[in-house]
Amino acid sequence: MNVSDLDDADLARRLRQGCLFLETGPFISRIQTSIESVQAGIALLYAGFPVHDNAPFADFHVALTRPAGLRRWFRPQVNFLFDGWTPFKPLPLEQAFAMFEWGMNWCVVNHAHKYLVLHAAVVEKGGRALIMPAPPGAGKSTLCAALVASGWRLLSDELAIISPDSGQLLPLPRPVGLKNASIDVIRTRYPDIAIGQEALDTAKGTVAHMKPPGDSVASQQLMAMPGWVLFPRYREGSALALEPFSRAATLSRLVGNAFNFTVLGRPAFECLSRLVDDSGCYSLEYSSLDEALERLDKLEVSAS
């Protein structure tokens, strides 16, 4: 049973009563909220994800609630609760769905140290993963959204989850976060793809989330071997430039992008060394999405 199999009233009831068990990648989250914008966001953007009736075990127990008191009426706010505890300060109510997404990322980053978790977008084609670590503003999410809209499979737009034992990447194909100008870029290029409500004036500017492709969600249990590590950078007016990037520098940048490198220690270093050895490593500067997509489609599997 998927989210789309529940009618709006049933989904809203499950969320209100805190018995929506949502399966995203390797995790099952139990979600509680009476906030309508979050209910609507889940209905639209999580349509293809499996739900469980009364799962006996949930990895994360999360809730989004409105603080009581004056804040009910005056500049209403929203809190993210992890099993009844609030790890963050409240945000304006209009940002509730964005807070849900950030909170779900926080759950993984803080509790999934069985895996090595990098801050990177990951897409896949032909069984090989393209890993794109990048600082905010480099155009990582835009490129990721465009790649999955044109046939690549989405593993994640934020979190590369790597099993240190097998070196494989685990998909977590939750909605793709788009910021500021990239929201319109993607909306204009791909008018058929659903994008959720915009949240204005967040810490990251205007934020909206893109619905992940159904195929990516349906194959969310299918892991992928690393294929390429790419450091993308959008620069207005630049000519397309795909350059090989040194393996040593790639390794060092991946370490810097890992959330839990020091938690895992040696296994993390060995895992990333193997990953870099097995991958083609590149930097990409682009201004035209079309050119970038065309070039990335021709990437060949590294022969090392």
């Binding site: 075990f57 990895d59 509790h111 999934a112 140290h113 069985k114 938690v263 895992l264």
Partner: peptide
């Protein structure tokens, strides 16, 4: 321990080991 639970326990072991190192 059931696999779904073991993931969380292994995660905690990693945190504990790191803290000891630190």
């Amino acid at each position: 321990v059931p696999a779904r639970v073991r993931v969380h326990l292994e995660s905690e072991c990693a945190l504990a080991d790191q803290q000891k190192r630190v």
